[in-house]
Amino acid sequence: MERKTARNFFIWGTAVCTAIFIWLTIDTHTTIPKRTNTDKLTDEVVRGKRVWHKYNCNDCHTILGIGGYYSPDMTKVYSSRGENWLRIFLKNPESTDPQRRKMPNQKLSGDEIKNLITFFKWVDAIDTNEWPPKPITVAKVTGAPLEETAQILKGKNVYNQNRCDLCHRIGGQGGVIGPDLSHIGTKRDTKWLSNLIINPKSINPMTQMPAYPQLSEDEVQALASFLGGLK
């Protein structure tokens, strides 16, 4: 091959590929409104995005899988944690466990938290071609052996449905905002537990745990029996 042939190959190859790339870019733009729901991209979402940038969250956390790998991905945080949990967490993210990787308290204002959550909500709905993928198999959680009466089973359901695990851990599974409940039955009885669930502030006025007025009396009882049985 001559040097001149090589040069023409360079010029034409680059030009054609650049043209294709620009064409794909234009086409991509036309799909963005639908794929990212730009009709829901409100000012509040944009303000939330600015908060995200202001505190440089993205250099610890990934979002859409891009950013720092130090902390969990934020793409689906809205649907996996829920608003309530996010509000509490963002107000005070510092874990009580000294061994655990900490997120520093950013001292966000109430407005900033609200905007961030709206931003996460918008991000959650982006069509990401199903990323992150669903796990192939879900690892089994081996909690403490339970004597599974109907009452306890029901309590377990209540626990799962209300996502108590977002803050609490049982047998190593769950969040770190609240105390570990793996052996809570050795310390507290069902009476104490049901009081706490109905009105957490009656036991500790400073607690971050929200009340669950939506639970029926039955459900509270079931939940308390389930927890009381964790020894």
Binding site: F9, T14, T18, I20, F21, L24, T28, L64, T128, W131
Partner: peptide, 26 residues
Amino acid sequence: YVEVALVLITGIIGTGHHYYWIGTPG
């Protein structure tokens, strides 16, 4: 020339390996 040509021919459209999961088309 040959190397740089190939770098650009593959690399420009190759940007697409970052567009799998960020909300861009399949």
